[in-house]
Computed example of a mutant assay.
Amino acid sequence: MLRIIPFEIRKLFEQPMIFLFFIASLFLNTMYIATAELDQSYLNYVQETEVKTGTLITSEFHEKLSNQYTSRNQQRLLIETAKLENVFQHYATEVLGQEMINYFQIQGSVAEKMKIKYEKLTSVVHELAEEQAALEMGTAGETMSIFTFIRNRLFRAILGESLIFALLLGLYGSTSERLTKTDVLVVTSKTGRKTQVGKYAASFILIFLFYVTMVMLTFGIFNHMYPIGTLWETSMSTQFHLNVYVPQSLEIPFIPWQPMTLLNYTILSIVLGGLLIIICHGFNFLIGLWTDHLFRGFIVFVIMYVVFLGLEQIINQMGWWNLHSLLMWHPISLWKVQGYWFTEMGPYATIPWQESIAMVINIFLLGIGGILTSKFYATKEVK
């Protein structure tokens, strides 16, 4: 079946919608970047200044900064770094856990699991305190805007586009023979049925190329328009960067399960996003095989998505926290909480690294689904 993969890839490339979708996605991302309104002049000033002052905010840093040429940017930097301290030095994760439980009114066994989770976070906080991560300057007051744009907006846009592409190509890859009315020829022989393996591989390769290319081009354009330089090496846990669960009400330090720089965090997010795309493509390919029609498969997916959202709303309103915690293992939930990946994730996780573990479990379930579908497809009747 490997020999048909190049032919299936060529067939997919012959579809003009693939190129149109890629161009439209790249154009939207470029416009998104162009309208980001990030303060590049201040970023440039901070990066030039840190060569003389260092990147850690200490008394020596303030002394060196005060002796620099007086300017508007210098005064702004002095004000923004005036009262910062190593917040992780005496940070109590148990108190944070109780704050989460009280704010979201978490009850029952989930509350107990949450307490254990935040107890495990203590060692990470101690490590961040030793590294003085909170004292890293980054871009001072502009750090939150840049970090949030990269992890919560720009990457989310790339991931969303890639998931849509994976959904559509997964369904199309498994139903294309029906669209061209050659499906009878395929299912009337054992060899013909096995061509679906090649179709799966071809659509998977194309999705992988789309995702990788979109990541490289989008971040390349971003770096060209907003060269952030050494900011990529700034800790995600600098005090200028917060994890926001409820604006103005619940904003806490950004605490990942392992100290990370912006570059580390972005790379790990890209890898985890790739796993989510594999899951989305795989399950929708299987849906296409079961429904035997692109439109019917799409309707099934939409119904499942709408039902999931409705179920989530009901569970949240009723305060059924045991069901809520189970829901957080679903691929749709994993996508929705993308902005919290690799952190303690507040009410959206009960164990460390839950999003990563959930991805592996979903890939395992995809494998089981593939085995069951292959048995179904091997005995499928011709209609």
Rank of each mutant, 00 (worst) to 15 (best):
G220H: 02
V360R: 03
F301G: 01
L262K: 09
S325M: 12
F22D: 00
I278K: 00
L365A: 13
Y340E: 10
W335H: 14
G160P: 00
T70E: 13
E251M: 12
I164Q: 00
V51A: 13
Y32E: 03
H90A: 12
K380W: 06
V197T: 11
T93K: 01
F301E: 06
I9L: 12
A157F: 14
I278N: 03
T195G: 00
I315V: 15
I287A: 07
Y200N: 03
P331G: 05
E94Q: 11
L263I: 10
L43N: 02
L289W: 03
Q239P: 00
I18C: 05
P259T: 03
V215K: 01
W257E: 07
I299R: 11
Y200C: 07
T30M: 11
N102L: 09
E112Q: 12
W257D: 08
A129F: 02
M1I: 14
I314R: 05
I164N: 01
Q338S: 04
R72N: 11
M100C: 07
S189T: 15
L365K: 03
E112A: 05
F208N: 04
V271I: 15
F21Q: 06
H62E: 06
M144C: 01
R3I: 09
H293Y: 02
L168H: 00
G282R: 04
I277C: 04
V197M: 09
S109E: 15
E127Y: 02
S162R: 14
V215S: 09
Q107H: 15
Y265A: 11
R3L: 13
F7V: 11
R296V: 08
E14V: 05
T182Q: 12
W321A: 02
P256T: 14
Q107R: 14
M100Y: 13
Q74K: 15
S374R: 12
A166L: 08
E80M: 08
R178L: 01
S25N: 08
T53D: 05
Y69P: 00
E142W: 06
K199W: 04
H126P: 00
M260E: 13
A24V: 09
I23F: 15
T266E: 07
K117P: 04
Q248Y: 09
S325R: 04
A140E: 08
W290R: 14
G288Q: 03
Y200V: 06
